[in-house]
């Protein structure tokens, strides 16, 4: 569980604040908001990549600033909005980097690691990509692989910054289905940001909106509430 306490999010100047909010496992949270309002900044603050202006992020009641990088990595996986392909890096190897906290000091994989790899590739239907280099993938394939890598990491919470931005409609749906299933079946807490509002509201996500007038993060439950923010 991740708790946000009196958080002020910003990058230099104040963007918005979160009074008190808990992210639970077993659910998918979708953060909505206009461009530049600070969705990514919020996600990055939760992942410990940059610190909030004020307040604290608690992971299972531990303040993230007091936790070691390793401890945070065990609890949180983060997927960037534009993962980059690397030459000479096969997909299998890329995915297994998600197991870094479990492999030996030389980075050797165990049978378990390889089983998890095979299972995850099956879930994401990317078995055929295994030997391809990551810089030869399409943007959509790469995004799929990056999400798969986060699952392989085995952390309770998975943060995804616009995970569907480069995907076509059917792949967007595939990802959303997969995320929901992962959350309920594997007891993961998933937080994502998205601009695909209409599609997202077809799913049983929890919705959070960064309100540009009140400059706060608020819970919403219907598409019409989101429309108010985006139609002005």
């Amino acid at each position: 569980m991740i708790a946000l306490k009196n958080l002020t999010i910003g990058f230099g100047h104040e963007l918005f604040s979160v009074h008190d909010f808990n992210f639970e496992i077993g659910r998918v949270y979708s953060i909505l908001g206009r461009n530049g309002i600070g969705k990514s900044t919020l996600l990055r603050a939760i992942a410990g990549l940059n610190s909030p202006l004020k307040g604290s992020v608690l992971i299972e009641n531990n303040d993230i600033v007091n936790m070691s990088g390793k401890a945070v990595a065990q609890k949180i996986a983060f997927v960037n909005s534009n993962p980059l392909g690397v030459s000479h890096l096969p997909v299998d190897e890329f995915l297994l980097l998600g197991r870094s906290n479990f492999t030996s000091i030389w980075g050797a994989y165990s049978k378990d690691d390889l089983d998890i790899l095979a299972h995850t590739k099956m879930l994401f239907q990317i078995e055929h990509l295994g030997m391809k280099y990551t810089n030869q993938l399409s943007t959509g394939e790469l995004q799929l692989c990056a999400i798969a890598k986060a699952f392989i990491q085995g952390s309770d919470m998975i943060l995804l910054d616009e995970p569907t931005s480069a995907l076509d409609y059917s792949n967007k749906r595939k990802i959303y289905d997969l995320l929901l299933r992962q959350a309920s079946e594997y007891k993961k807490g998933i937080i994502l940001t998205t601009h695909d509002i209409e599609l997202a509201f077809k799913y049983a996500f929890k919705f959070l909106l960064i309100n540009s007038r009140s400059k706060t993060l608020e819970k919403i439950s219907s598409f019409s509430e989101a429309e108010k923010e985006f139609l002005i």
Partner: peptide, 12 residues
Amino acid sequence: VLGEEAVKLMGY
């Protein structure tokens, strides 16, 4: 090889 942010995210 995935970038410095990836290193930080894995706890190094």
